[in-house]
Write a protein that binds this DNA or RNA. Structure first.
Length: 425
DNA sequence: TCTGGGGTCCTAGGACCC
DNA sequence: TCTGGGGTCCTAGGACCC
């Protein structure tokens, strides 16, 4: 058996924990740059606000119903996530942290327990320890645990806990679940399926296996088996090493000058370097992309440029990565456009422990970050760890011209002393 | 005026190897 | 008449997840 513990309306719930006055108000949280709505409390959902709606399209509705609107506060959500996960981690032998607000638990050794009662214990304890409401779904496969969790969320009769532990229960759960709500079935596949009159999870479970294998490929075949009770997706107890790391942002206002774009690109490359060091990895490739708004009606005003280069050697050094990104910008930049977004991706990652083993073909070229670079980066990370992000940065990292909008940011209640003090004051 | 960010996996086809 | 077998790597594109 697998359990899926999934936080309810996670970002909105995080905002509520430290602001009880919000408990009776609809709450929404915005994407970076305050563009779209990406989290909604139940009340906000009831107002008909859809996931991903651009704020400017529902500004009136938000005002009319006195919806509390927040910029996204990732330091807060990330920290709350790790607090939430401590409880299920303590209550089950194995946990897979699946996303910021979800975890799978291995319940296979709980044969002698009342599983529904245990699920209620998990739910109650998370709520008590963190203030975050969660739902728990349990079933013989991960995909069915997802189905169970969804039912627990949607239907109040479950009171936040749904256990699917028999053929009949599973069959009726599948019949109640639309195929597009199944984990792994997105917009395109559900279109394909409905054209074949496959409309519920039960229909998909019963569809001819060769047809599923042909049109939904190996992932779809696995999914179908999971719906039929055969577990194909094992617990993944250690997070796999990252294959790529991306830092990208939309800009608060259009950027037209090379200098401002240059600073943005340097900042993103610098952030990628920090993430690389945190991951204890080095990168061999770097991709830069820059672009205008894709929503501009004037097609001549649109531009999207992207280019990937090999780095001189696998590196996690901020200066090397920033210089590389800037050299790509020299190639991609076109004057006369109103840039709205840029990003840096580092890829071909390998563990830092392996770096430096490969020598350069040309003896006089460096093949890895120097000892000096390593020490310098260590000092920089240490200072920023102690005095806060951005306390020490390279001169080219600058956010004056392109800073994303973040007008409705809540305090970082759990990670920043200065924010708490200002709240009190 | 105004539209997110960060990831993964799979397939198909071409090109190549011995 | 008849023309091998077994692979890898790379890339672009598509689909999905939260």
């Amino acid at each position: 058996m697998f359990a899926l513990v999934d936080c309810n309306n996670f970002y909105a719930s995080c905002e509520r924990v430290f602001n009880p006055a919000l408990r009776t108000r609809p709450v929404v949280v915005l994407s970076n740059n305050d563009g779209c709505i990406i989290a909604r409390s139940e009340e906000a959902k009831a107002l008909g606000i859809k996931m991903g709606t651009p704020v400017f399209k529902c500004r009136d509705l938000l005002r009319r119903h006195k919806v509390a609107v927040f910029s996204s506060n990732y330091p807060l959500y990330g920290d709350m996530s790790s607090r939430v996960m401590m409880t299920p981690a303590a209550l089950a032998p194995d946990i897979e942290l699946y996303s910021i607000d979800e975890a799978f638990l291995d319940m296979s050794s709980f044969g002698r327990y009342d599983l529904a009662e245990y699920a209620r214990l998990i739910r109650r304890t998370v709520r008590q320890h963190t203030g975050i409401p969660v739902c728990v779904g349990m079933a013989p496969t991960k995909t069915l645990a997802k189905v169970a969790n969804r039912l627990a969320k949607k239907n109040p009769v479950y009171q936040g806990v749904c256990l699917l532990d028999g053929a009949e229960l599973i069959a009726s759960a599948l019949a109640m679940t639309k195929v597009e709500d199944v984990w792994g079935i997105g917009r395109q596949l559900s279109k394909l399926l409905s054209a074949r009159n496959i409309n519920t999870a039960a229909d998909l479970a019963a569809a001819p296996v060769p047809w599923v294998r042909k049109h939904l490929h190996i992932t779809g075949a696995r999914l179908q088996a999971e719906l039929n009770g055969t577990s194909c997706l094992p617990m993944e107890l250690v997070r796999a090493a990252k294959q790529s790391i991306c830092t990208s942002r939309s800009f608060g206002k259009s950027v037209t000058t090379f200098d401002e774009l240059h600073q943005a690109v340097a900042t993103f490359a610098g952030k990628c370097a920090v993430k690389l060091r945190k991951e204890q990895a080095v990168a061999s490739m770097l991709t830069l992309f820059i672009g205008t708004s894709p929503f501009d009606d004037n097609e001549g005003a649109r531009y999207w440029g992207t280019k990937t280069i090999s780095l001189p050697y696998p590196t996690q050094d901020s200066m090397t990565l920033i210089r590389a990104a800037q050299s790509v910008l020299d190639v991609l930049f076109r004057a006369g456009y109103a840039y709205k977004k840029a990003g840096v991706i580092v890829s071909e990652l390998s563990p830092v422990a392996l770096a430096g083993r490969t020598l350069s073909l040309f003896a006089d070229e460096a093949a890895a970050d120097s000892e000096q670079s390593k020490t310098l980066m260590q000092v920089m990370d240490g200072i920023n760890e102690r005095y806060g992000r951005g306390a020490l940065r390279l001169a080219s990292e600058n956010s004056v011209g392109w800073k994303p909008n973040q007008d409705r940011l809540s305090p970082s209640y759990t990670t920043r002393w200065s924010d708490i003090i200002s709240v009190k004051g």
